[in-house]
Design a protein around this nucleic acid. Structure first.
Length: 602
RNA sequence: CUUCCCGUAGUUCAAUGGAUAGAACGACUCCCUUCUAAGGAGUAGAUCGAGGUCCGAUUCCUCGCGGGAAGACCA
C-alpha cells in the first residue's frame, strides 16, 4: 500500500526528498499519511500546510473519484479522498477495494504471504542459543534461542539464506568445576569443606559411601539435574575454597590434555548426557541447527592463530599471559592465553571465526546472539579479529539481548540462583493444563495445546519487547494469558477457526463476490503485514511483529464481538468468512516468524 | 574510578525527528437465551530534571540526578 502511494507521490514531486509514508494510527488521519510536505516546504522555503494543500489537490485531480474521471480511467482511482491537515500532513483515505483486493492474495499465497526479496542473495550466519555442556540449559539460553530463531526467520522472510549455528562449550573451567563436583560425590575422600560457603548436596545424601552418580539406565532429566548440582558445588568451592580452586584448575588442565583416565570417562559421559538433553530442548523449541560447533574443535586453531599474531605484534605478552591491549582502541585488555598456558574463551572465539568462515561459502553477514553483558567482550574480540581476518570481521556483528531478571536479582548458574529452561517450561505447562482441564478435548489435543501454548507464552514474553532490554520475568504475569501475550494471539486464531467450522456446517461458502461497501480495521491491518515484515528485517527487530500481531488480534476480536460473521441470511456473510480466513493466515504467518505455532483448538 | 547501556501511566512494554504519546496488567463501570468470556465496550492515569539544535524532540547534543552492565587470566 505504501508503495502505491509512494509511486503516486514520486510522479508528482520532482524534488529528491524523503517521502515518509506510513500507516496512520487513527482513521481521523486517514489510512496512511505522509510528511513530505514538511521536507518539501523546507527546500522551497514555504509553509508546510500550503505545500500539503497543493499536493493533496494535485493527487485528488488524478486519483480520487471526485475529479479522476476527467483525466484517467477508473483503474487509477485508488483513493476515497486525500486531505491536507494541520500542521502539514497529507492524509490518504483509500477506497475499500484497495484493501479488499489483498484478501485473495493472502489466501493464494498462504504460508508464504508476507515474504519479500529485500535480502535476496544474502547469506546470513546466525550463531545463537549456545548452551554449555556440563551446565544447565537456563533461561538465558532460552532468550538467545527465541531471539536468534526469530531473527533467522525474519531474514528468511526477507529473502535471505540463513545458516543456523550453535556453539557449545564442551571445554573450559565450567567443565572442571562440574567434574570436581562429581568427584566430591563419588570420592568423598577428596572432599573439601566450605570456608564460609553454603553447603550443597549432590543428589540424595550419600549414605555409607554410596554415591548418587546416575546409572546409565537413569532418566536423562536425573542425569542433567545431577550435573547441574555438581556445577553449583564446584563453582561455590572455586570461589570460597582456595584448595578446591587449585584442584579445579588442575582438573581443567587434565581435561584439556586428556591425561587422566577417570576424568576422561566422566567427561565423556557428562558431555553425552548434556548434548542429548540439548537436542531434546531444541526439538521442543522448534529450532533446527545447520551446524553444531564444539568449543573443543576450535581451540587448537585459535591458539595457533593467536601465537602467530603474537609474533606479528597484534598480541602482547604480559605477566606470563598473552593479551590484547584494547586500550589502544578505547577498549579494555583481555587475556587470550592465560599465564597457565591455557587458551581462554577469547582465543576460542578466534578459532570459531575461522571455523565459521570455512563452513559456508559466500557469507555476507555473521551474527552472534548472546546476553548483553558480553557486549564489551565482543568489541575487544572483534577488534582483534579485524587484524586477523579483516574481511570476516567486517561482516561480523554481535547482538546483545537483555537479561532475564527476577525479583530475587540476577540469575546466575554459578551461584545456583537459576531457573532452568526446563523448570520454567514445566511450570507454565502446568498452568496451561489447569486452564484446559475442563474443556471438552481429547488427550491428544490437550497435549498439543499444552506444548504449543506454553512455548508460545514464553517466546512471546521474550519477543514482545525490543532486543537488548532486560526482561523482568514475573511468573504470575507471564503465566497469565490475558492481554499482551502469546496465548491471546493463539486464542484469537482458534476462535476464528471455529467460525470457519461453523460456516462449513451452515453451508456458508467463502466468496469474494459481494463485498461490503466499507472496510473494517481488520482489512486495513491485514494490509500492513508485509510492511511490518520488511521493517523487522531492516531493523533486525522481532518485536515489531509481536506488536503488530497484538493489534491485529485486538482488531479482529473487536470485529468478532461486534459483527455476526456466519449468517445465512446475510449476503455479506461469505465475504466475512473470507476475511476471517485471511486473518487466520496472517496471524499464523506472523506467529511463524516469531517461532510460535498455532494450535487448532484451545 | 573509567567506559557502555537505560530512565515513558501504580506496574510491564510500544512509538522510521512529526499530529491528540499507543497497548497490556492492576483499579473502577458495563456486556454471555448471539460463531470458544483465555473475549468485548468504557472511565481514570505517563515522557527523571535543566539547558541547547530544529518549523517541530519521548527520539538528536551537553550537564545533572537515578538504575544496570562491563572493566587481565570463567564467559
Amino acid at each position: 500500500m505504501t508503495e502505491k502511494i509512494l509511486k503516486i507521490l514520486k510522479s508528482i514531486i520532482k524534488e529528491n526528498v524523503d517521502m515518509g509514508v506510513s500507516a496512520s494510527e487513527k482513521l481521523g488521519f486517514g489510512h496512511y499519511s505522509s510528511n513530505v510536505a514538511f521536507k518539501l516546504a523546507k527546500i522551497q522555503g514555504r509553509s508546510p500546510l500550503k505545500v500539503a494543500n497543493e499536493l493533496a489537490e494535485k493527487i485528488n485531480d488524478s486519483y480520487s473519484p471526485i475529479r479522476a474521471n476527467r483525466r484517467m480511467g477508473d483503474s487509477e482511482v485508488i483513493f476515497e479522498k486525500v486531505e491536507a491537515a494541520v500542521p502539514g500532513f497529507i492524509n490518504f483515505w483509500l477506497k475499500p477495494e484497495e484493501f479488499q483486493k489483498e484478501l485473495p492474495v493472502i489466501l493464494k499465497n498462504k504460508d508464504k504471504y508476507g515474504k519479500n526479496n529485500n535480502l535476496k542473495g544474502q547469506k546470513i550466519l546466525v550463531d545463537y542459543t549456545d548452551p554449555n555442556p556440563f551446565k544447565e540449559f537456563h533461561i538465558g539460553h532460552l532468550m538467545s534461542n527465541a531471539i536468534g530463531e526469530s531473527l533467522c526467520r525474519i531474514f528468511e522472510w526477507n529473502g535471505a539464506k540463513v545458516v543456523r549455528v550453535c556453539y557449545q562449550g564442551d571445554v573450559g573451567l565450567h567443565v572442571a568445576k562440574t567434574i570436581w563436583g562429581i568427584l566430591q560425590d563419588i570420592n568423598p575422600v577428596r572432599s573439601r569443606p566450605a570456608e564460609g560457603g553454603a553447603t550443597v548436596t549432590l543428589g540424595r545424601p550419600a549414605s555409607n559411601g554410596v554415591n548418587s552418580f546416575p546409572k546409565d539406565s537413569a532418566k536423562l532429566s536425573e542425569k542433567i539435574a545431577y550435573i547441574g548440582r555438581a556445577y553449583v558445588l564446584g563453582s561455590q568451592r572455586y570461589e570460597d575454597n582456595k584448595c578446591a580452586a587449585e584442584e579445579i584448575k588442575d582438573i581443567n588442565k587434565k581435561v584439556f590434555d586428556g591425561s587422566d583416565k577417570d576424568i576422561n570417562n566422566l567427561y565423556k559421559k557428562g558431555k553425552k548426557w548434556s548434548l542429548e538433553h540439548f537436542d531434546e530442548v531444541y526439538e521442543k523449541l522448534g529450532t533446527k541447527f545447520d551446524h553444531f560447533i564444539l568449543e573443543s574443535s576450535v581451540i587448537s586453531d585459535g591458539e595457533k592463530i593467536v601465537r602467530e599474531f603474537l609474533k606479528k605484534g597484534i598480541f602482547e605478552e604480559s605477566e606470563g599471559a598473552v593479551i590484547f591491549k584494547g586500550e589502544k582502541y578505547g577498549l579494555h585488555t583481555r587475556v587470550f592465553i592465560s599465564s597457565q598456558g591455557l587458551p581462554t574463551y577469547e582465543t576460542k572465539d578466534i578459532g570459531l571465526a575461522k571455523k565459521k568462515m570455512g563452513l559456508e561459502k559466500g557469507l555476507t553477514s555473521s551474527l552472534v546472539v548472546t546476553a548483553n553483558e558480553q557486549n564489551a567482550y565482543f568489541q575487544v574480540v572483534f577488534k582483534a579479529l579485524k587484524f586477523i581476518f579483516p574481511e570476516y570481521a567486517k561482516i561480523s556483528k554481535h547482538i546483545g539481548h537483555g537479561m532475564m531478571r527476577f525479583a530475587s536479582g540476577k540469575m546466575s548458574s554459578r551461584s545456583g540462583n537459576i531457573i532452568t529452561a526446563e523448570s520454567l517450561m514445566e511450570e507454565i505447562e502446568k498452568l496451561v493444563e489447569a486452564k484446559i482441564a475442563e474443556q471438552k478435548l481429547t488427550e491428544k489435543e490437550k497435549k498439543e495445546i499444552k506444548d504449543v501454548v506454553s512455548i508460545g507464552a514464553i517466546k512471546y514474553s521474550i519477543l514482545r519487547q525490543a532486543i537488548g532490554g532486560d526482561i523482568i520475568f514475573d511468573f504470575e504475569k507471564s503465566i497469565s494469558f490475558e492481554g499482551d501475550s502469546g496465548p491471546y494471539l493463539q486464542y484469537a486464531y482458534t476462535r476464528a477457526k471455529s467460525i470457519l467450522e461453523k460456516a462449513k456446517a451452515e453451508k456458508v461458502k467463502p466468496l469474494l463476490k459481494v463485498m461490503t461497501s466499507d472496510v473494517s480495521e481488520v482489512e486495513t491491518m491485514l494490509c500492513r503485514f508485509s510492511e511490518i515484515v520488511e521493517r523487522s528485517g531492516k531493523e533486525q527487530a522481532p518485536h515489531y511483529i509481536a506488536t503488530y500481531l497484538i493489534e491485529l488480534a485486538r482488531v479482529f476480536n473487536a470485529y468478532y464481538a461486534k459483527v455476526k460473521i456466519v449468517d445465512v441470511k446475510d449476503k455479506y456473510s461469505p465475504y466475512k468468512v473470507v476475511l476471517t480466513s485471511a486473518f487466520m493466515q496472517v496471524m499464523k504467518n506472523g506467529l511463524e516468524i516469531l517461532g510460535i505455532k498455532v494450535p487448532e483448538r484451545m
